[in-house]
Simulated assay, not measured.
Amino acid sequence: MPVRQPRYSKEEFARRGDAIYESQVRSLVEVGNDGKIVAIDIETGAFELADDTMTATRQLYARLPDAQPWVVRIGHRAVHRFGARSLKPSS
């Protein structure tokens, strides 16, 4: 698998990814997909939904080999959790 080089700073990646998720993707994927992963190309807005990060990003790269993927876990503040405390917002 070729090494893909990021074209944006970490801050710009996050800004673009979050903006696309909130404005274009969230309403399409949120209902019924809590905990699933969505990989979003921060340049085109194309996205793939899967149960895990690797599957979602591989599916996105299959469609767009030059994608710049931003990954979101639906319904959670973070994709991965470190430590014992959950980051899921309490209801």
Rank of each mutant, 00 (worst) to 15 (best):
Y21M: 01
L60N: 01
R73F: 14
K88Y: 12
E11F: 07
P2Q: 12
P65C: 00
A78L: 07
P6A: 02
V72F: 09
S90L: 02
S91F: 14
E12G: 01
T57Q: 13
S23V: 10
D52V: 07
D41I: 01
L87S: 15
E22H: 05
A84G: 06
L64M: 02
D41R: 00
R7Y: 00
A50G: 06
A39T: 06
P2S: 03
E48M: 12
R16A: 09
L64Y: 08
V29K: 07
R16C: 04
Y21L: 06
G45E: 09
D51N: 13
G17I: 08
T55H: 10
D66M: 06
G45K: 04
S9K: 03
F13P: 05
G32N: 06
M1E: 13
G83S: 01
P89S: 08
T55L: 09
S9V: 11
A67E: 07
L60E: 02
A78E: 15
T44H: 06
E30Q: 12
G83L: 14
E48L: 02
G45H: 02
Q24H: 12
G32H: 01
K88C: 09
I40D: 00
S9C: 02
D41M: 06
T57P: 13
Q5K: 15
H76F: 12
R58D: 13
G17P: 07
R26C: 08
S9P: 00
L60Y: 04
L49V: 03
S90A: 14
G32M: 04
